[in-house]
Nucleic acid binder design. Structure first.
Lengths: 356, 356
DNA sequence: TTGAAAGCGCTAACAT
DNA sequence: ATGTTAGCGCTTTCAA
């Protein structure tokens, strides 16, 4: 059982007002950094606030008609829970929280992680409920919600601002993403520089537009580098390990197999490595492998995986900034254009010179 | 820029009342499952609620004096952010969210992850601010907060119920933990059954009481199994990789080194393996290694790591249940006693028969 | 079983 | 520059 002492009554704005000897409004003004408060009054109020340990109630603030100081991060329920359960070290959500929570905290905001079912017919109900219950000042959309028409429509209808991480479609809200097209291209360039001519590609779940984007980036870079453009070098996966196994089987069983493979996720890269090991194909001597995401596992594979790092924390931090200060420099900087956050290619031991 | 249509006015309890033709009270009663509502009225109200897509505002509910439907998960700021930044795959927070968010969702609650600085003198300020701003119905404490006197005092003074994951000290709040003492013992038994007689132990950060607990479990099991009790087989770490390196150096440089080492964290077990590899000590043939936590990395080490799985998701789920239904069966079940959630020893390739 | 009234803590709009 | 008023949407009294 929980032991409880008689709870001390909460200190409210009234207590502060009484203490300082001014009206509630003056306190409120100081709290909200409104103009029209004398320096002297402001000082006295701030002193009293600190001394009494007063913090305004979010609920009351909302009721009074101001901001809610809440941001909602919308993630796909099934995928998120599945990843948590699988314990494969995918830390997308962690990176999101890292960028989101720290940025929110700097502005007195809280981030609430909300899991909603993308495919459910009831997405309107789930989302509507969350919006009605919490009345957040903004919503951060993550893939695959970022391009979900239903979600965007609801948010627009409810008048809730949104930032769309990894979004593509021209629509409402602010888009924040990395350049997936260029990232795939960078992979090709890295491999081309190492002398590879036949480069395989394992695409991701086509439900995610970034899959398409990466594939296009691969194709364009292959063409630009004058390498062999051969559709049999392209296999489709769904980001998961199992799909990577299948794709690798196909690619590595070709008459003229690729000397390098770019996988659209670390998990699929891992699968490629497993199949290669199975076939006694040495890495990186006979086969170079590149992954996407740079999850923790990339560091512990043998050989360690060369991978594209998605700037998830930075994207989420940007998203929070845009929502918290819609008129701030950061938000205005993009002026309707997508915010493109730089990615990185971390070169490790899984890529090397082409054989022969 | 965010495009916004004219936001539709929120549907409130008034709208529902007007629609059904009853008073606000009746709606409120139905929503809160209070008695004294005729079946017919209840039915009509529920229909209207569904049809209008009404969800009560949390803020307004709080203001009205009811529960806030918010639970706060208090984590150590520095350690959490450090782990997120390091990207080593430690998924403690993820497992906590898995158990916490899903359980909260089942009851219409939300979980807010709040990072506070344990060592800061200002912990009272930070925590007080969060409590005042959010007025949560309960707080979930995670190590090392779970035994923090200051934190417990503040919560008690504010009359906020708390569940203490991994807590030990007799104090306020409900304790939910695994049996660390028994877990360390189980490791020893597993190794003893494999014929090991000299078993080393790398302790964790002494700031965490569970470190002490595991060490004691190790000692007791060594004695119970009649194995060599030798304090030089015990090294102190702090859960981190670097400290594991140091500890392993010491243990593996002994005149008579252990044939098996139990590390109080996976990271330290990883370090032990690195040092062993450095010294060309074969695993598991010449050295068996066991870790604690069973983080994702345990699966990808070579050899794969035998480890104790902390039931973090289950503990957090239990914590949420206890706080949400303080008078429910689950909470009453423990009746003031700690809730002890079962752990598991997952045997992988890093443990084998003792040499010779 | 139902309804009416009061108030939670705050802010926006309007005085002064 | 400051104070006053009204009201946000709900729940808890209390009365019928």
């Amino acid at each position: 059982m929980t032991t409880r002492a008689r709870p001390r009554r909460k200190v409210t704005i009234k207590d502060v007002a009484a203490d300082v000897g001014v009206s509630l409004q003056t306190i409120s003004r100081v709290l909200n950094k409104s103009p029209n408060v004398s320096a002297k009054a402001r000082e006295k109020v701030e002193e009293a606030v600190a001394r009494l340990g007063y913090s305004p109630s979010l609920a009351a603030r909302r009721m009074g008609g101001s901001k809610s100081f809440l941001l909602l991060a919308l993630n796909d329920r099934d995928r998120t829970i599945e990843q948590w359960r699988a314990r494969e070290g995918i830390d997308w959500v962690d990176q999101m929280l890292l960028g989101g929570i720290t940025t929110c905290a700097e502005h007195g905001y809280r981030l609430i992680l909300e899991l909603v079912d993308t495919h459910s017919d009831n997405i309107a109900g789930e989302l509507g409920n969350a919006l009605a219950a919490l009345r957040p000042d903004g919503v951060i959309l993550t893939p695959p919600h970022s391009d979900n028409r239903k979600v965007l429509d609801i948010l627009e209808r409810e008048g809730v601002a949104c930032a769309r991480i990894g979004g593509f479609d021209q629509a409402s809200g602010t888009i924040i993403r990395m350049d997936d097209h260029a990232a795939a291209g960078r992979c090709v360039e890295h491999l081309a520089a190492l002398g590879h001519r036949r480069i395989g590609f394992v695409a991701g779940d086509p439900e995610y537009q970034l899959s398409t984007e990466r594939l296009a980036g691969y194709r364009d870079a292959i063409a630009a580098a004058g390498l062999e453009a051969d559709d049999s070098l392209i296999a489709e996966g769904d980001f998961g390990y199992a799909s990577g196994l299948k794709a690798a089987e196909v690619l590595l069983s070709l008459d003229r197999p690729p000397t390098a493979i770019i996988a659209s996720s670390d998990q699929m890269a891992l699968a490629v490595m497993a199949v290669a090991r199975d076939k006694a194909i040495a890495m990186p001597d006979q086969l170079s492998v590149i992954g996407f995401d740079d999850t923790p596992i990339a560091r512990t594979t043998t050989p360690a995986l060369t991978a594209i790092s998605q700037p998830v924390a930075a994207m989420t931090a940007r998203a929070a900034e845009v929502l918290i200060q819609p008129d701030g420099d950061v938000a205005r900087g993009a002026n309707g254009q997508p915010h493109v956050i730089p990615f990185e290619l971390t070169v490790r031991a899984s890529t090397g010179p082409a054989p022969r």
